[in-house]
Design a protein around this nucleic acid. Sequence first.
DNA 1: AGAGACCGGTCTGCAATACAGACTTGCCTC
DNA 2: GAGGCAAGTCTGTATTGCAGACCGGTCTCT
Lengths: 101, 101
Amino acid sequence: MKDPIRTLLELDRLVHEPARLAILTVLASAGSVEFKFMEQVTHLSKGNLNSHATKLETAGYLDVQKAFRGKVPLTSFRITKQGREALAKYWEQLMAANTNG
Amino acid sequence: MKDPIRTLLELDRLVHEPARLAILTVLASAGSVEFKFMEQVTHLSKGNLNSHATKLETAGYLDVQKAFRGKVPLTSFRITKQGREALAKYWEQLMAANTNG
DNA sequence: AGAGACCGGTCTGCAATACAGACTTGCCTC
DNA sequence: GAGGCAAGTCTGTATTGCAGACCGGTCTCT
């Protein structure tokens, strides 16, 4: 195996950011999640949540689905295959360096 | 237990930064480590390493020991009790949110 | 009809900070 | 004493997380 210390420095910083890690973690277990709900669960501000979601979308880690509930816009997020893989890899790398048990 | 997602957002960012996590991880298992050695293990530049070490020192997470080898100054790092606790708590919080394993 | 409250989203401004590289000081060798 | 090297500090830059203001559009209440 590679040097576990070096592995720490190679962590995917897109995933490593707590706000985005929270988003991905929610999506990984919840399938599809509405914007508003995500906002409440993560306690992120709208601007901040949108900014992180956009970054994750750009990276291909999540899909943004735009729909309407009646005439009100409704935005939902869904994790992609790539996102799931990135998250799994992230945990793997982290575990490789965890000497605590 | 508290909401694991919220826990992610309360991670100690001093520990969360990969460079510092690497430093603390090395120190947690190695006792006392010289500056040069740490530089090699972590692949951080001198400037960067010094900056991170200073932050950890300010937080009370590590001790900086200045000595001389012959007439050459020698700096070593050692993790403190607080640092060990912070690291342990960090892993705990992270594990609480890890749904993968 | 008008006021006020949601929803989703953009944009601006600010403060923090990771990082590299230049610089300093002091020692040794030729 | 010129040059090289090693340990360590300091400065400058570019990124980025974050909150809050603002906007278009819709709904509700009076």
